[in-house]
C-alpha cells in the first residue's frame, strides 16, 4: 500500500500523461465550441478547468467521456495510445453536473450501477459499496431512495457511483455547483481526502476560482467560445491543504492571475454577445 501513498505537494509525473489533447476542434453547425484545444493530464494529477459560461467546458468533457466525437484532424491520446472518442466509452469515470440518480433505485443500488453494467454480481457489488458508505457520509442510508435525501447527500451518492466505477481518469463536471457554500466547502475538503487515499487522476470543471485553486495541482483557464486554453497555472500549494489556505499570500497571488485571465475572456464573450444583438 505504501507505493499508493501520495507524497504531498507533488503533482503527477508530467512524463507520463494519461490523457493528451492536441489541436482538438469541435463545431456544431456554424458554431465552434472548441478551437485548437490542447491539454495534457498526468497520471495521478488533479487538474481543474475554469472558464466563462458557454466556453465549451461541457463539450470538452463529453469528448473525453466518449460521448461526442471531435472534428477530424485533432489528436486524442489516452494511456499513450491514439484513440477515437468513442473508444473511451466505459474507460473513463464520468460524473455529469446533475446527480442523475435513478429514482427507483436505493442509495446502494444507485452506487453500484456501473459495477452492475460491468457484470459484477449484485451481491458482491453491494457488499463492496456498503463498506464505502461511511467514507461518503452515507452510513445508515443504504436503503433510502433518492427523494429522501438532501442535495448534498444525493451528490455524494453520485460521487460514490463515480468512484466505484474504478477507472484511472475521473471527470467531474461542477459536482458541487448546486450546493450551498457551507456544504460545498465541506465537500471540497472531503473530496481531497478521498482523492489522497485513492489516488486517481481527476479532471474537474468548475466556475468557482477558489475551488479550482483549492483542489487542483494545475488550473486550466479556458478562453471564451470557441474554447481553447488561455492560461495554464500550476498550484504549488502544499498538501494536505487546510481550509484557511485560501487567505494565504500564495493563494491570493494565484487567484489574482486567474481572475485577470477570466475577466479578459468574460469581457470578450460579453462584447461578442452585445455585438450579435446589435447586428440583428
Amino acid at each position: 500500500m505504501l507505493q499508493k501513498e501520495r507524497p504531498s505537494a507533488t503533482a503527477g509525473d508530467p512524463a507520463k500523461p494519461i490523457l493528451e489533447l492536441r489541436n482538438v476542434n469541435k463545431t456544431f453547425g456554424s458554431v465552434a465550441a472548441l478551437h485548437d484545444f490542447r491539454a495534457s493530464v498526468a497520471l495521478g494529477e488533479f487538474v481543474t478547468v475554469v472558464g466563462p459560461s458557454g466556453c465549451g467546458k461541457s463539450t470538452l468533457f463529453n469528448i473525453v467521456a466518449g460521448l461526442e466525437e471531435p472534428d477530424t484532424g485533432g489528436i486524442l491520446r489516452f494511456e499513450s495510445r491514439s484513440v477515437h472518442a468513442s473508444d473511451l466509452l466505459g474507460r473513463v469515470s464520468f460524473m455529469p453536473q446533475r446527480d442523475l440518480l435513478f429514482s427507483w433505485r436505493t442509495v446502494i443500488d444507485n452506487a453500484i450501477l456501473a459495477l452492475e453494467v460491468e457484470g459484477v454480481p449484485r451481491k458482491k457489488a453491494r457488499a463492496e459499496a456498503l463498506g464505502l458508505l461511511p467514507e461518503f457520509g452515507l452510513s445508515g442510508f443504504a436503503d433510502h431512495y433518492p427523494h429522501q435525501l438532501s442535495g448534498g447527500m444525493r451528490q455524494r451518492v453520485a460521487l460514490m457511483r463515480t468512484f466505484l466505477f474504478k477507472r484511472e481518469l475521473m471527470l467531474l463536471d461542477e459536482p458541487f455547483g448546486a450546493l450551498d457554500a457551507l456544504t460545498r466547502a465541506m465537500m471540497q475538503r472531503w473530496l481531497l481526502d478521498v482523492w489522497q487515499k485513492n489516488r486517481r487522476t481527476i479532471l474537474f470543471i468548475t466556475h468557482d476560482v477558489d475551488e479550482a485553486i483549492f483542489l487542483g495541482d494545475r488550473v486550466l483557464v479556458m478562453t471564451a467560445r470557441p474554447g481553447g486554453v488561455k492560461l495554464e497555472q500550476r498550484v504549488d500549494l502544499p498538501r494536505p491543504r487546510s481550509p484557511d489556505i485560501v487567505t494565504s499570500p500564495a493563494f491570493i497571488e494565484i487567484k489574482r492571475a486567474l481572475l485577470a485571465a477570466i475577466e479578459e475572456e468574460s469581457m470578450k464573450s460579453f462584447a461578442a454577445a452585445n455585438f450579435r444583438e446589435y447586428a440583428q
Binding site: R98, V117, F165
Partner: peptide
C-alpha cells in the same frame, strides 16, 4: 433523460442494459 442515457453509455452499457436498467 438524455443525460441519464449518456451516463449509462459512459459506463459502457450495451443497448440491452440501457433498456432494462
Amino acid at each position: 433523460d438524455p443525460a441519464q442515457e449518456a451516463l449509462m453509455k459512459s459506463f459502457g452499457a450495451p443497448h440491452r442494459q440501457l433498456f432494462w436498467k
